[in-house]
Design a binder for these strands. Structure first.
Lengths: 125, 125
DNA sequence: TTGATAATGATAACACAATATCATTTGACC
DNA sequence: GGTCAAATGATATTGTGTTATCATTATCAA
């Protein structure tokens, strides 16, 4: 990643502006405004480069290809709308005491939470 | 699913006995004791049939192919060992109040939690 | 402005999990 | 025990997401 191309700028900006994790195809769509003719290969290439540069981070959800979001956020979890399938960021509330549920000898290093439901936009329809 | 074959019995039993979610290949390995020569196609076929019969249920984890566990358990979550990559069942402790973290208008239907860490067996080594 | 080369877009190729195919085996009813 | 379709095992095929290839374009230092 040594040159500053319009495609990379568009992809970086799309992920920053989205405020929620985007999949590769969502990145492609969201970036096309500022980078007409953008190809999917370039999206994957730049996602990889931005990951390595720690500018974005990967969000893995059960049963789906990975999504990507701007890096450097505080600990948070995600909400997936069952209707539009978009994923949103949830701030704040975290896990309760886990120790009671842990088998003896198990050591925790991290955790993740995924909440399923209907987002505000879809609930209105 | 109309005939009671030794392969199907072995697969069903492997999943019941494991006490934790198994992936397709884990099912194959665990079933071979009681079904020598078992093939992976048969594992997939029977997983599908047992799912339809609601005898087992699917456990989706981020970034991995699905695993399967005996159906009918109480609400619970999972623990994935980073070292041996086995997944274990966690009972008990659940989520705190989510409402504070939810954007206005969002409706929750379910949630899932995945805890990462080192299992007791791996911690000993 | 120019030259070297990193980056791009189109698309072929790949990797992996899962399913389809098909000859053979086997469970269940008579 | 004999019959016959369901089930199996081996493997070819598919499907989806991602990466490789390569001719062309565009960035940037000189």
């Amino acid at each position: 990643m040594q040159r500053d191309t319009s495609q990379r700028r568009a992809i970086r900006r799309a992920l920053e502006d989205a405020g929620r994790p985007l999949g590769a195809l969502e990145v492609l769509e969201a970036s096309k405004d500022h980078a007409p003719g953008l190809g999917i290969a370039t999206v994957y290439r730049n996602i990889k480069a931005l990951l390595k540069a720690k500018e974005i981070s990967e969000v893995q959800l059960p049963g789906e290809p990975p999504r990507y979001e701007a890096a450097g956020k505080d600990h948070h979890h995600h909400f997936r709308c069952e209707r539009c399938e978009k994923v949103f960021e949830l701030g704040g509330a975290c896990l309760p005491d886990l120790k009671g549920a842990l088998p003896r000898g198990f050591k925790v290093t991290s955790h993740e939470v995924l909440v399923h439901g209907i987002c505000a936009a879809c609930a209105k329809k």
